[in-house]
């Protein structure tokens, strides 16, 4: 597997995309939950909460088709750019844009999950503390920074650590349904590559070997993070 020049490129793509996804995918729900937590109107809050979880349910097969349509040369996005007087961009044919689209669309699809978790954690914060802070004259911003965030940090650490286990899973379903040969150099990931090779070989063996390899890497990362957190923050993640 390693003496294939394409393999190295593919591994690099996977790492890059996965890491960016982990970063963006950790920040987005966190920030969103903070913002949503500020809302006082229960109905609005609950509605938004329910709606943002929806993209999670849509299959990449469907979503891939929708995105391909919107991002096409004459699709909605390019039409919008045209209004603004900009040139149309070939999103799905240029490797760099393709990567960006992968990350953005994946975050959009999954941030609802993290948001709900963070909101649940925020719901567990004692409201009396907030009242005490009000009496002390804290404004909303200060309340958020000094109270809400610290209460949620433990969960955030857990989520980020566990998601590190996915460092080599850049999202087979998503890439498979959106890629084409032109973006292989930048967009092909380990799983899609293995899938195509596997088709030719007609067996599970390469996929199993790669799966094992991914697990090993993920395990090493999680173990390292655990050690670091235990040593420097005296926090045991599990």
């Amino acid at each position: 597997m390693f003496h294939d020049p394409v393999a190295l490129q593919v591994i690099w793509n996977t790492l890059l995309i996965a890491v960016l996804k982990i970063i963006a995918g950790s920040i987005a729900p966190f920030a969103f939950a903070l913002l949503l937590n500020e809302v006082r109107r229960m109905l609005f809050k609950r509605t938004v909460q329910s709606l943002v979880y929806l993209p999670h349910f849509i299959n990449w097969v469907i979503l891939g088709g929708i995105l391909t349509d919107i991002l096409s040369t004459n699709g909605l996005i390019n039409q919008f750019l045209g209004w603004l007087g900009l040139n149309s961009i070939d999103f799905l044919q240029s490797g760099n844009w393709f990567r960006a689209i992968l990350i953005i669309s994946d975050v959009w699809k999954e941030f609802g999950f993290g948001t709900i978790l963070y909101l649940a954690a925020m719901a567990g914060i004692n409201p009396n503390m907030y009242e005490a802070a009000d009496i002390d004259g804290a404004n909303n911003f200060q309340k958020a920074i000094y109270m809400t965030i610290p209460a949620v940090i433990p969960i955030a650490i857990v989520l980020v650590t566990l998601s590190l286990g996915n460092i080599l899973n850049a999202g087979f379903d998503q890439v498979f349904n959106m890629y084409n040969p032109l973006v292989y150099p930048k967009g092909d990931i380990i799983d899609t590559y293995v899938y195509r090779v596997g088709l030719q070989q007609g067996s599970f063996s390469l996929a199993t070997a790669v799966g094992f390899f991914k697990s090993v890497i993920g395990f090493i990362l999680i173990a390292t993070t655990y050690r670091l957190a235990a040593k420097y923050a005296n926090y045991r993640i599990f």
């Binding site: 913002l35 809302v39 709606l51 929806l54 979503l63 929708i66 959009w108």
Partner: peptide
Amino acid sequence: FLALMAFLCILPM
């Protein structure tokens, strides 16, 4: 902003 995000999320459905 929140409403916009929610709206974007519901569009594919």
